[in-house]
Design a protein around this nucleic acid. Sequence first.
DNA 1: CGCGTTGGTCGTATGACCAACGCGGTGCTATACT
Length: 466
Amino acid sequence: MQLEQELERFLGFRDFRVGQREVVAHVLDGKDCFAMLPTGTGKTVCYQLSGYLLDGTVLIVSPLLSLMQDQVERMRANGEKRVVALNSFLSLQEKQRALEDLSAYKFIFVSPEMLANRQIRMAIRRLTIGLFVVDEAHCISQWGHDFRPDYLELGAVREELGSPVTLVLTATATKKVRADIKNQLRLTACMDVIHSVDRPNIALDVQKMDSRFEKQAQLLKLTGLLKGPGIVYFSSKKLAERYAFEIAEQHGLRTAFYHGDMSGEDRVTIQQQFIQNQLHLICATSAFGMGIDKGDIRYVIHFHMPGDLEAYLQEIGRAGRDGAPSIAILLYADGDEAIQLQLQDRDLPEEELVHLSPALTEQLPITERRFLEFYRELGLTPNQIKEKIQFRKRWKRENLYTFLNFIKGITCRRQFVRHYFEEEAKQEAISNCCDVCGVDHADFEGENETIEEQQDWQKYLEYLLK
DNA sequence: CGCGTTGGTCGTATGACCAACGCGGTGCTATACT
């Protein structure tokens, strides 16, 4: 068919990558499509090319401001001027102007929160939406149920816009999560384009430690041996900061930390430095990573475990996008799950709070408050809300314990992952598969590239002044 | 939950000990004011 020609004509690529062609074909056929494609497959191409080949506007729901800005800039750099991001980066005047002239844009990026705004929705309703895209759709299931409830309104918004053809994009979602997402978006008949989450070039290494001290020592040892660039994930902002300095000092590496308390400006700087190879490694919380377009990340270490296997795969999936051998190392000491258990509990309100009066609900911390208000506005009874809380708590806890089974397991890690995602078992042997099958660590060790010293004193000064 | 920090006590060492406490992650938007 001529889709290849269109691809070259509009985007300048010769060939489709895995899954892209199928997705575009479904969309052009007027079918809703759930696409689960590996990280780095260029999910953007799917909606961009579809957009050029169909009538109407492409509306893309995106979870992060930085991600939107990034996509907009990239598309503009490729010569597409009819693109805009409706978000809080726009001044009031810019926003008004954009809304008045919305039909001038072919691609509109928007956050779920913006779509909750009536004025915005009214403006969008005047358009013909040719394609409704939900990017990083696992966020619906991962965040929508607790701290970003507007994600749960997307189904209603979609219907309000006349149920346009919908494209759902993500890299990691189990069957259970895919069903949840479809349910939330009110998608009934939907074509699935599902590819494996398994990334054969990433060695899966779980290292069980006897104590925290051993874990600390191992982290310092590993960061000295491994060849970067790398990411180390923590569940604590304080520790991310501390180790960024300690590792830099001990190994003479250029490091930085990254977490949600930093200003947008600082976050952009660090991200750019990392992408442009100005840093050997980043010590980060889960705030870091989504939308990071860097091919040559060679290792991802977890000093703390994330809350479930999907989050883990998301985070390690940032390694080895270029296809070259990379390693994911998870350091685990007994009881590490305590932090995750605690965080999970904090997300959701205590069950008894469903009976709280609206006035008292306002006094609650913001996430708990919004959870309750959201379901009350939907007209749920206290008992129904209580059931939601119980269901959600159980869901999270079960996922955490399954992840623990992965960590404590004694079978091939890769087979475990494939089984968890209900994929077929892998037949062919993989070199450097996992710690159970055997990993040659020497393959991932080596001197880090030297980085020109520049403005180091500036960073140091900033640190001292804090 | 369990770790690390804080702060009180002891009673005279400028530290040592222990109990109590608090911390531990993810993002959007709106709007007022210095």
